[in-house]
Write a protein that binds this DNA or RNA. Structure first.
Length: 782
DNA sequence: GTTAGGGTT
């Protein structure tokens, strides 16, 4: 069934126009309440269910294609069963009995069992899919089927199918770049183009040149397979043309060299249909000026005209818009007043990552009111696009906006901007209405606007700071990360900036670049060219003059790379160890890796919401440390430990217990890793907070900012000038140093993010004299 | 005077 079964135009959203053209759902299929009390299905029932999946009919074809091609692209829509079935098909077909090539003096090949890896961008997906497959195979998790995600490895000596996050496989690649444990690597959700998946693409292609036995299956929901196919094409254009000549443009599938498309190819392509209900897509006839107003009208119209069951999911750009729409809807509908002819109530459920877990839970549970007369309206960010699935949704309202974080390498600043979604995202959002029954999707933009959208979002690798990626590649022994096999190359500027940072941190040496930045804010200027062209131009350049010496990873760089942290943070931990407070530094970086530690109750949390928010603010102020945000995080962790890591303490102080648990897990992992480096993680500075601040200065010296009169009135009278790029920023209002009197003269920050304006966050006071003493190469007196 | 979403041997 096609997801976009029909396209129906509706007028600019207006009360009179939408309902008239809407149709009743064709049929009621499935219900989200059915699954709860079902007994555990037997093996036979599983077998029946498997045979109903669209992919089952293609089992032989999938297996044969993987047999004949080292690389296969498998396109399967939602519900095709690809994630659970493909690994089982390949296991049944004997792909795990890999052959270890003869090594050294060993005369003959040794048969050995290798694994099938299936990577996922998200932990929950790896865990739940593995659980499902273990059930289907009638084994316990950790036996034939297992999973590995950070902090949680459920694999054993007998495991042959291993679900894992792409990050875990990437970490494994650091010690085993040829991925020798695996016979087949399946990259699932490849269309999402996560940073880790993209790096794996290049690594696997590289490994395939050495290992003829390594199979890769790229699984994607995107119909455009060309980009993946071309990437894994081993022979390149020349070989391709020769094959076409030999077999003809429309030659049959012959000797495994022709794909189903009839193109000469070393890459096999399989397409599997999905199993989704049809979703009718509605567009606006006119562009909407205010997407919150438009969303409000659309929700009210759907609510008044559509029967239950059928909850509504609205996609918005962020917390602010969600709160505004929640307010508008409750004003218009009344929180528990029935409205319209249908006499139904509305229950509004905000859903975004920073929301307290117990408030998030409302979106997933049945409504508090009677199910027969209460409709849930979920107001979500893109968290509901891929990360979570909500049952019962039959109507999607899509504003077409999303917030996108983007690193600007020429300035070293991150920006967070409201941006139009891509067509693939719009389709993904639409699909959320058709999981259980036919549904409807209302796009609050015009069809021509839809057609003008980008086809797919920009891959993450082109939007992020690459310092950690470049260091990882160097640590793996790739001596030239600029010319790595990127599926989508990052800009030359972004790569150059990463090298510059690594050089400044002492992670690499003898590069063609000199150290970047000094106290005066003067720095090497890297001409900003447009992304891809720059890389291609560089690649095409014939070497002229003496070759530049390539940067080499230093012993310090290897230690930094061994920690699963941003190199700046890892450097901080190692410097803190030299200065006597690694214990506190480990706490700091662990807390920094857990987001949304402090939480604010939703303003719509009932009659005492305002009071709760005041209490939260007071509680948070009581946790603040004088010296800044990083000392505050350390303080919070220590208080939490003193309170025996209790949930009650979290509750009383408006601290997110889940974030604390995550920080604790990260900390435990880091303790192990620094011990492996021969360091003593219990080395603490005790009450001598100056030692910790000195470590912060020494570690975060690339992020120093000094207070000075603002050159632009937009930042107020004073601002903080960042020494690395000479730009001005303000201290973020959430910082404990915001509006501090007297204002600190010299600070380090953990993050700079441009939203309404450039803000530095994670701000702590440092002493300029410490910088001069501890980082003399940058801050020493001339 | 305020922060989309993931993720790491």
């Amino acid at each position: 069934m096609s997801m976009e079964a029909r396209k129906v135009h509706v007028g600019a959203v207006g009360l009179s126009q939408l309902p008239k053209k809407m149709k009743r759902p064709r049929e009621e299929v499935g219900s989200h309440q059915l699954t709860a009390f079902q007994p555990t299905p037997s093996r036979r029932q599983h077998q029946n269910a498997r045979q109903q999946l669209p992919i089952w009919r293609q089992k032989t074809y999938v297996v044969e294609t993987v047999r004949r091609h080292a690389s296969v692209v498998l396109v399967g829509e939602t519900g095709s069963g690809k994630s659970t079935q493909v690994p089982q098909f390949l296991l049944d077909a004997g792909f795990c009995a890999g052959i270890v090539e003869a090594q050294g003096s060993t005369p003959s090949p040794i048969r050995a069992r290798k694994l099938i890896a299936c990577t996922q961008p998200r932990r929950v997906a790896a865990i739940t899919v593995a659980g499902r497959v273990a059930e289907e195979m009638g084994c316990a998790l950790g036996q034939a089927v297992g999973y590995a995600v950070r902090f949680d490895d459920k694999t054993g000596p007998r495991t042959v199918i291993k679900y894992m996050t792409d990050g875990v496989l990437l970490r494994e690649a650091m010690t085993d770049p040829l991925l020798t444990r695996y016979a087949v690597i399946i990259l699932d959700e490849a269309h999402e183009r996560s940073l880790q998946t993209d790096i794996l693409f290049g690594l696997i292609r590289r490994a395939q040149r050495e290992r003829k036995d390594l199979r890769v299956v790229v699984m994607s929901a995107t119909l455009d397979v060309e980009v993946f196919r071309r990437f894994f094409e081993t022979g390149g254009r020349k070989e391709e043309k020769a094959l076409i000549k030999r077999h003809g443009e429309n030659g049959k599938h012959e000797k495994g060299m022709l794909s189903r498309e009839g193109q000469a190819s070393t890459v096999g392509v399989v397409r599997i249909e999905g199993r989704q209900y049809g979703v009718e897509v509605y567009y606006c006839e006119e562009a909407q000026e205010d997407s919150i107003d438009a969303a409000c009208l659309a929700v009210l119209q759907i609510h008044e005209s559509e029967p239950l069951p059928g909850d509504i999911l609205v996609f918005l750009s962020g917390q602010e818009d969600i709160e505004a729409l929640a307010e508008l809807l409750s004003e218009s509908a009344g929180t528990d007043t029935s409205i319209g002819k249908t006499g139904l109530c509305m229950e509004i459920c905000p859903l975004y990552s920073a929301l307290a877990p117990e408030e998030q839970a409302k979106a997933f549970h049945p409504p508090k009111g009677p199910a027969k007369s209460t409709r849930k309206v979920i107001l979500a960010t893109n968290i509901a696009e891929t990360s979570v699935t909500i049952n019962g949704i039959r109507h999607v309202v899509d504003t077409g906006w999303v917030k996108v974080r983007r690193y600007v390498p020429s300035t070293g600043l991150d920006s967070l901007k409201v941006t139009q979604i891509a067509r693939a995202q719009a389709q993904q959002r639409t699909g959320r209405a058709g999981r259980e029954a036919p549904g409807k999707c209302y796009r609050l933009f015009t069809e021509s606007a839809f057609e003008r959208l980008d086809a797919v979002p920009q891959p993450e690798i082109q939007r992020v700071n690459l310092t950690q990626v470049v260091l990882q590649l160097l640590a793996m022994g790739l001596d030239d990360p600029q010319h790595f096999d990127y599926l989508s190359p990052p800009s030359a500027t972004a790569l150059a900036r990463a090298f510059e940072t690594l050089l400044a941190l002492g992670c690499i040496a003898e590069g063609g670049l000199s150290p970047g930045g000094n106290v005066d804010g003067t720095r090497i200027v890297i001409p900003e060219k447009d992304d891809r062209q720059a890389v291609e131009a560089q690649a095409d350049q014939k070497p002229s003059g003496p070759a530049k010496s390539r940067p080499v990873i230093t012993p310090h760089g290897r230690r930094v790379a061994s920690l699963p942290l941003d190199p700046v943070y890892a450097h901080f931990v190692l410097r803190a160890s030299e200065l006597g407070c690694i214990f506190e530094a480990l706490t700091a970086v662990s807390m920094l890796s857990a987001e949304n530690v402090l939480y604010m109750p939703s303003p719509h949390g009932g009659p005492d919401a305002a009071e709760q928010r005041n209490r939260a603010t007071t509680a948070h102020r009581a946790l603040a440390a004088y010296d800044g945000d990083v000392p505050t995080l350390v303080h919070i962790y220590e208080r939490w430990v003193a309170a025996k890591k209790g949930n009650r303490w979290c509750w009383d102080h408006f601290v997110n217990a889940r974030a604390m648990k995550k920080a604790d897990e990260v900390r435990e992992q880091l303790l192990l890793l620094v011990r492996r480096l021969g360091l003593d993680p219990s080395q603490s500075c005790g009450n001598e907070r100056q030692i910790f601040l000195r470590s912060l200065a020494a570690g975060l010296f690339l992020n120093v900012a000094r207070r000075q009169p603002a050159t632009s009135p937009a930042l107020g009278k004073y601002c903080y000038k960042m020494l690395a790029n000479g730009r001005e920023a303000a201290i973020h209002p959430s910082s404990v140093l915001h509006a501090r009197n007297p204002a600190p003269q010299c600070v380090v920050f953990t993050e700079v993010l441009t939203t309404s304006r450039p803000y530095i966050r994670g701000v702590s006071i440092v002493d300029p004299a410490d910088l001069q003493e501890l980082v003399p190469q940058f801050f020493g007196r001339a």
